[in-house]
Computed example of a mutant assay.
Amino acid sequence: MGYEIELKYRVGETEADWPITAVESLGGVLGPPTSHVDRYYNHPCRDFAVSGEAFRMRCEGGLNHLTYKGPKLGGTAKTREEFEIGFASDPASSNAMPLMLERLGFIPIAEVRKTRRQAQLRLDSRTFQIALDRVEGLGAFVEVETFADLPDDLAEAQRAVGDLAARLGLKPEHLEPRSYLRMVLQRTAGQPAVHPPPQRDRS
């Protein structure tokens, strides 16, 4: 339980485009690639697309989690309340959980598959997660995130995530505000996968 604070950036597909050297220079050690399969569900009694919430089951390298994310809060980085609960990692549980959710009325809406390399950093008494993602059908991304236990810490956590992204050489013009789920849904609907740049107000 807590608040997830995250910035996501679109990067090139080659290793030279990834901030690996910058991560290592700050003391981060990238783990091996792991496979993620995220199955997203809608609520039987309210529309998460309207409320801004998200609920998923993740299978990650043999580990299973259920994750709820609340509506986005204000600020300079994507900030949401998050609850994550692990459950049995055997194949039978991986197969049974989606069936149970559907029996309870949850509606499967999309699946996101990606390969992730992740590093953890400890800077200025705060822990960060750096994720290098290749997402099936979408491309390559870098996520920079931290967590806050209390609402009073959100502004400082947002500032810290932005500062770390700059230290990693990630450019504001490559910022991707959409979730992987939204990008997958938009791609399925025939909308462009690349988020258009903001238009300058000419009024």
Rank of each mutant, 00 (worst) to 15 (best):
A16C: 13
A16W: 12
D17I: 04
W18T: 01
W18E: 01
W18R: 03
I20T: 02
V23D: 00
E24R: 02
E24P: 00
S25D: 14
L26V: 03
G27D: 15
G27F: 14
G27C: 13
V29T: 14
V29Y: 08
V29E: 14
P32F: 06
H36Y: 07
D38F: 05
Y40C: 06
N42K: 01
H43I: 04
C45R: 13
R46P: 03
R46N: 08
R46V: 08
F48T: 09
A49L: 11
S51G: 04
F55N: 02
R56A: 00
M57W: 00
E60N: 13
G61N: 14
G62N: 13
G62F: 12
G62I: 11
L63V: 11
L63Q: 14
L66W: 03
L66D: 00
Y68E: 11
Y68F: 11
G70E: 02
P71V: 00
K72F: 15
K78I: 01
T79L: 06
T79G: 04
E82R: 04
F83V: 08
E84A: 13
E84H: 11
I85Y: 05
F87Y: 08
D90H: 12
D90N: 10
S94E: 14
M97Q: 01
P98N: 12
L99G: 07
L101T: 06
E102N: 10
R103E: 14
P108D: 15
P108M: 10
V112T: 06
T115H: 07
Q120W: 13
L121D: 01
L121M: 09
S125E: 14
S125G: 12
